[in-house]
Amino acid sequence: MAAITTTAAGSAVAFARPAKAINVSSVSFAGSRKNNVAFTLQPVTQRFAVLRAAKKETVEKVCDIVKKQLVLPEGTDVTGASKFTDLGADSLDTVEIVMGLEEAFKISVDESSAQSIATVEDAAELIDKIVSNAK
């Protein structure tokens, strides 16, 4: 099914609906007349995001567990934004961190959720979510 639209110059343009969605990065319409209107669609950068902040005490406890699991030197700065890989953790270390979190918070983290954890904040948010769903 096609839709027909009239341009500012008075010429008709037909648009066919695609069978499935496509990702369009740029579209322009042009004609032989100088007064034709051109449209360009461009990706828009994200201007805001909805953040779920974990409880401060959860983040602090996760920071302590990460420091212990990775045997980080005294004075190493670990914050909610700290990435496990930046702290020197490999995949085995990350598994051990998750196991330490499960033990400390008395929770169970499924494998798919554990794979999405990259930062201390990710871990703290997941813990808060699991704990609140358990109530």
Rank of each mutant, 00 (worst) to 15 (best):
V24Q: 04
S26P: 00
V27A: 13
S28Q: 14
F29S: 06
F29R: 08
F29Q: 09
A30E: 13
A30P: 00
S32L: 14
S32M: 12
R33H: 11
N35I: 04
N35W: 03
V37D: 14
V37Q: 12
A38G: 05
A38L: 09
A38N: 12
T40C: 02
T40R: 07
T40L: 06
T40M: 02
L41V: 14
L41M: 11
P43Y: 00
V44C: 00
T45M: 07
F48K: 05
F48D: 02
V50M: 06
L51S: 11
R52W: 09
A54S: 12
A54Y: 01
K56N: 05
E57L: 13
T58G: 08
T58H: 10
V59G: 01
E60K: 13
E60S: 12
K61D: 05
V62H: 02
C63A: 11
D64E: 14
I65G: 00
I65A: 10
I65D: 01
K67V: 04
K68T: 12
Q69C: 12
Q69T: 15
V71Q: 14
L72P: 04
L72T: 02
L72H: 05
P73C: 00
T76I: 05
T76Q: 08
D77E: 15
V78C: 06
V78D: 04
T79L: 06
S82I: 06
K83S: 11
K83Y: 10
T85S: 12
G88H: 02
G88N: 04
G88D: 08
A89H: 08
D90Y: 03
D90N: 12
S91T: 08
S91M: 06
L92A: 08
E96C: 06
E96L: 10
E96M: 13
I97Y: 02
V98Q: 07
V98P: 06
V98F: 09
G100F: 10
E102A: 09
E103I: 05
A104W: 03
A104R: 13
F105R: 02
K106T: 13
I107E: 13
I107P: 05
I107K: 10
V109Q: 11
D110E: 15
E111P: 03
E111W: 01
E111F: 08
S112Y: 03
S112I: 13
S113M: 06
S113L: 01
Q115K: 15
S116E: 15
I117S: 06
